[in-house]
């Protein structure tokens, strides 16, 4: 995983609560066996009218949000299916950071495994960012994971908190599996003291 220190970029808005992973990446694209190339399918049914033409009604499609690296959205983002294709598509589209009042658990976990930073801010702070984004075309922001601080156009500045372990993993680009395998002896010990019915018996 690529280390994450900070991201600076244009902020795009998605002004809806409870955005589920079916909307982030619809099911017809989950049949692919690759990990890459999902960006063009992001928010597919909302972004496109017929699969090709951009939907002018979908706010994120406006020219002013082109090349956005940060997404600001509402509560319970990423609910529903566990599909990791959701963070893959957000990352592949160009987002490195998602800001919302809250996230669904599995999606939140999946983000960290892929170097996508989900930042929780209060409803009021998120609302202020939405207002900034709408007021100023090309509204930009820096999200600094090292300092756990957001600085945005217009002098806006917010602190945020990321779980220390996850923060360290992101900053260093550490791979969870590698970390866990350092404790292989403990796993083996657990296995040797664990009695049946741990092992399934087949008739």
């Amino acid at each position: 995983m690529e280390p994450f220190e900070k991201v600076h970029g244009v902020v795009a808005p998605l002004d809806l609560p409870n955005v589920d992973t079916d909307q982030i990446i619809p099911k017809q694209f989950l049949k692919r066996i690759e990990r890459t190339g999902f960006g063009r399918f992001l928010f597919y049914d909302w972004r496109f009218l017929d699969g090709k033409t951009l939907n002018p009604e979908f706010e994120m499609n406006q020219e002013r949000y082109r090349g956005a690296g940060i997404l600001v959205t509402r509560a319970n983002f990423g609910c529903g299916s566990s599909r990791e294709h959701a963070p893959w598509s957000l990352l592949d589209y160009g987002f490195r950071c998602i800001i919302a009042p809250s996230f669904a658990d599995i999606f939140f976990n999946n983000c960290f495994k892929n170097g996508l930073l989900p930042v929780r801010l209060s409803e009021e702070q998120v609302e202020a960012i939405f207002q900034g984004v709408r007021k100023t075309a090309g509204f930009q922001m820096t999200v600094d994971l090292q300092k756990q601080q957001i600085k945005a156009d217009g002098g806006m500045s917010y602190g945020f908190r990321v779980d220390p372990f996850r923060r360290r993993c992101l900053l260093n680009g550490w791979d969870d599996i590698g970390l866990t395998l350092r404790h292989e002896d403990l796993i083996s010990q657990f296995e040797s003291r664990s009695a049946p019915p741990l092992s399934p018996t087949s008739a």
């Binding site: 566990s82 990791e84 963070p87 599995i106 976990n109 999946n110 495994k113 892929n114 969870d176």
Partner: peptide
């Protein structure tokens, strides 16, 4: 439920 990275883990 878990994501694909956790499946690999």
């Amino acid at each position: 439920g878990i994501g694909t990275s956790e499946v690999e883990h």
